[in-house]
Each structure stands twice: as C-alpha cells, then as structure tokens.
Design a protein around this nucleic acid. Sequence first.
DNA 1: CCTATTTGTTTTATAAAATAGAAAAATAAT
DNA 2: ATTATTTTTCTATTTTATAAAACAAATAGG
Lengths: 108, 108
Amino acid sequence: MEKILSRTEETLLLAVWALAPNAYGLAIGEHLRKLTGKRWSVGAIYIPLERLEARGLLAAHEGEPTPQRGGRSKRFFTLTPQGLKALNEARRLHEALWAAVPDEGGLA
Amino acid sequence: MEKILSRTEETLLLAVWALAPNAYGLAIGEHLRKLTGKRWSVGAIYIPLERLEARGLLAAHEGEPTPQRGGRSKRFFTLTPQGLKALNEARRLHEALWAAVPDEGGLA
DNA sequence: CCTATTTGTTTTATAAAATAGAAAAATAAT
DNA sequence: ATTATTTTTCTATTTTATAAAACAAATAGG
C-alpha cells in the first residue's frame, strides 16, 4: 500500500504544478500565502519539498542567474509522473471519503 | 486565521459524519480500513479523536452497554457545528488548490 | 460463581513530520 | 571591495503519527 500524502505534501505538489515551470521555494510560499491566507515559513516549505524530492514525487534542477539585483540561484521543482499519480490517488481518496457521508447537501 | 485541518483530522471528521450516530473508535477504524485500504492503528484513531474533541470539533458521550458478548461501554462521537464548519473550510481550500492547476484534464 | 473470551478504550514509548526562525550562500549593483 | 537582495540550508522546537501493550467491562459457559 502506498503512503497517503499528508495535506502539506499534497498542497506543495499542487503548488508546484500550478506554478509550472517556475516553481521554486519562495514563489511557492507566496502562492500558498495567497491561496490559503496564512503565512508559510521557509521551513514549512523547503523541508517537505526536499522530502518529496527524495521520495521521487518531485524533481529539481538549478536555475540560471537572472539579471535581477541579487539572489542566489533558484532551485526549480517539477512534478514527476509518480507525483502526479500520488496526487490522483489523494484526490480519489478524498472523494471517496466525502461520498461516504450521507447528506452532503447539508453543507453549502 | 483558523488552523487548517490535517488530513487525518479531516478523515476522522468525515468518518464520524458518515457513521452518525454510531461513530465510536473501533467502528471508525473499521470504516476507514475499508475506505482507505490500509490498517489504522488504535493510536492513529483515538489520539486525534481526543484532540478534535478538545478543540470542539467533535462532541462525545458514553454509550449504554449493549446485549452483545463483551465490550466496555462505547464512546460515541458526533460532529459539532464547528466541526462541520472546519470540514467545509477544508473542502473549499482543497478545491481552490486544485482549481489553481492549469490543466486538470490531464489526470483521469 | 468464576474464569476465559470478547469488545473496547487508555496509556506509554518511539518515530516522523511540521513549523519557525536564524544563519549561510550566492549574486549583482554600487 | 562593499553592500543590498534574494534564495536556500541549517538548527531547534513542537506537534502528529504509529505501534503495541495495558487496562476495563461485559457475558457466555462450565
């Protein structure tokens, strides 16, 4: 049985996908801040990103220096096929859980 | 800003909802085992349930002994209005994250 | 009775993940 | 060279997850 993605992991994978092909640490944080309305500390981003890379759900490559003022070179992340698969699986599970609820209409 | 539900928390809240009004520890575990295909240890159920109760997302009450073979009395859980609200919020966020992805059709 | 068995919850110990924030590294403008 | 800026890496802390053993309550059957 494959491991279920945590919410953080799913969220990060989706952010990488949404920002493709320009997904790097700080941009991901900014994207998530806008979408979730809460602040994402750098640790809350880089550490799980690394884990996802180690697990093969993300791939990373160094970016070229840009003609901007400063800045160390970026590490860009992209979804791997396994990453996509894991996202699919998480979504399927999510839907199954909601479908098991008797009267979903009670929400809004 | 309200805290975002972890996947475990969301899953447990949905299970309580799905089994209402007969949601208690072991039954929840069995429900989730069937739905997710993986084994849920007792710790993975009771501990977060307690936390959800402490946060006010679940309410608990003791059940009467039943005419079954054995069994200590059950603790039944029900969703509180805040629990429902939190589920709604988690779902809204989930949808927003997926909506930010460019071509969702690429999945299946 | 009374004890073996079943159903259920609590407790305890350990591992893994999430989070925050400081520090370090890399780059280009001045 | 020096400094401002952007980005990542490191370190420490808290929170969650997981597994397994201990504890509790009930009844069936001898």
